[in-house]
Amino acid sequence: MLKIGDVLLVSIQVELEDQVVLELQDDLAARIVDSGASGVVIDITAVEIVDSFVGRMLATTAAISRMLDAQTVVVGMRPAVAITLVELGLSLGGVRTALTLEKGLEILARRDDSRPAQL
C-alpha cells in the first residue's frame, strides 16, 4: 500500500485468496484512518478474474472508505472482467471506476477541491 499525497494506492498483483481479500479490506480501513487519506485507488490491472467475493470486497471497501471520509476509485478493470461481472449480476453500482490510474487520481483530485456531500 503506497501513499501518494492524500491518496492510498493499492495495487493488486497476486491471485487473490479469499482470506487475503478480507485482510486487505481491514488493513485498508486502518490505513485510511492512520494516514488521514482522502482517497483510495485500487488498481486491478493485473487481476484476471473478479468473482462475486472479490466484487463484494470492492463494493464493501468503497462503502467503508466513504464512511471514513475517503473516496475509492477502482482502476484498470479488464474488458473481459467487466463483461463477466455484469453477466454474473454484479454491476458494482456504488463503486467509482476509472480506466487508468491517471484518470483515477484526477477524479480524486477534483473531489478534494470541492468535497461534495455524499450519500
Binding site: 484476471e48 478474474i49 468473482d51 479488464r78 473481459a80 472482467v81 463483461i83 463477466t84 454474473l88
Partner: peptide, 9 residues
Amino acid sequence: LVDQTKLVT
C-alpha cells in the same frame, strides 16, 4: 479471452 474469464469466474 472473454470465455476464459467467464469460465474461470
